[in-house]
């Protein structure tokens, strides 16, 4: 359980986190989503006491992080993939971290196996790929078998197999009743992993709701259609709120009509349809809609790069 109350962080004149309140509950994966410079990493650093809040308060399991007598057994955090001395081996890094809590070497070997670091454990971290660095960070987070797990951009640099592994890991940890809080710039990934979503923009919380609610409230129905008469189908479907985009000579993406309606129209007009795939409303769309509201409500402030340039791939979290 993570509870933030009116949490804020200012760096000089710049406000990175602007009085946010939220709680991250156990037993589910909570996603933390926001554009570049939105304050995600700063918030996570404040949770584990690396940064002191300028105002407000954040507690983990009822206490400030630093007040816990065994912090690594309460909270495991992956904050920065390379928070490791580059000249030290992965095994020695984990051994040094474990020693602070009297965690036995057997557990160190366990997390190395769990995260698939076995073949490189005795190599210096400086030579690690981004993905291996992430795995080491995750191994470190799991060292104390903590009740609360915080992962900042865990899938960054992982290969598809690694991405899937993190997804299963996060869901698995949550299903055991742990609190799982993870940020990711891959919103499709968030849609697959998170049960609950906290969206942050310019240091403020834009949305804090179950992911299904966010998708239902903001996404639009879309479907992919393959037909040999795309123009006829578009004409037949022409109605309020229906728009389409043609990708290939026979491939359309139709927004605003569900698959059943498309099928009915196609049947009525005797148009052959040989692919009809309902597309889930994308979190990206929902997210864009949320942040555009934010821009509207706060148009007196200068728009930030992350929000204005937030189209498509512009939502990547920087370091």
């Amino acid at each position: 359980m993570i509870e933030a109350a009116e949490l804020s962080k200012r760096y000089g004149a710049k406000t990175a986190v602007d009085g946010i309140s939220f709680s991250v509950k156990p037993g589910q994966v909570t996603g933390f989503l926001g554009p570049n410079g939105a304050g995600k990493s700063t918030t996570m650093r404040m949770i584990v006491g690396l940064d002191n809040p300028s105002g407000g308060d954040v507690r983990v399991n009822g206490k400030h992080y630093a007040q816990h007598s065994a912090p690594l057994r309460e909270v495991g955090a992956l904050l920065d993939a390379k928070a490791v001395h580059t000249k030290r081996t992965a095994y020695n890094h984990l051994r040094a971290m474990a020693a602070t809590h009297g965690i036995p070497n057997s557990r160190v070997k366990e997390v190395i196996e769990m995260t698939g670091l076995g073949p490189v454990a005795k190599k210096r971290v400086g030579g690690f790929s981004l993905g291996m660095g992430q795995r080491l960070g995750i191994a470190c987070a799991l060292l104390g078998d903590p009740h609360t797990v915080i992962l900042d951009e865990p899938v960054n640099g992982l290969d598809p197999e690694g991405v899937q592994w993190v997804r299963h890991l996060a869901k698995g940890l949550a299903s055991e009743g742990r609190t799982v809080f993870l940020s990711s710039h891959l919103m499709s990934e968030m849609a697959l992993t998170a049960d609950h979503l906290i969206v942050i923009g310019r240091g403020r919380i834009i949305a804090d709701a179950p992911i299904k609610e966010i998708l239902a409230g903001h996404g639009q129905t879309r479907a992919r259609v393959r037909t040999d008469r795309p123009a006829d189908l578009i004409r037949a479907l022409a109605a309020d709120g229906v728009s389409s985009q043609q990708f290939e000579s026979d491939l359309l993406e139709i927004t605003g009509a569900d698959s059943r309606r498309i099928a009915e129209v196609a049947l009525n007009h005797q148009i052959l349809v040989y692919e009809l795939t309902p597309l889930q409303a994308s979190l990206e769309d929902a997210y864009m809609q949320l942040t555009s509201d934010e821009v509207e409500y706060h148009s007196h402030t200068l728009p930030q790069a992350g929000v204005t340039a937030g189209g498509g791939a512009g939502l990547q979290e920087g370091k």
Binding site: S69, P146, H147
Partner: peptide
């Protein structure tokens, strides 16, 4: 100490498992 599976259970940390200067 953490169970071998590491993820099967999680008891509350006890006083003996924390940080001290010797560690």
């Amino acid at each position: 100490a953490p169970s071998p599976q590491g993820t099967t259970s999680h008891r509350r940390p006890t006083s003996g498992s924390g940080v001290n200067f010797a560690r």
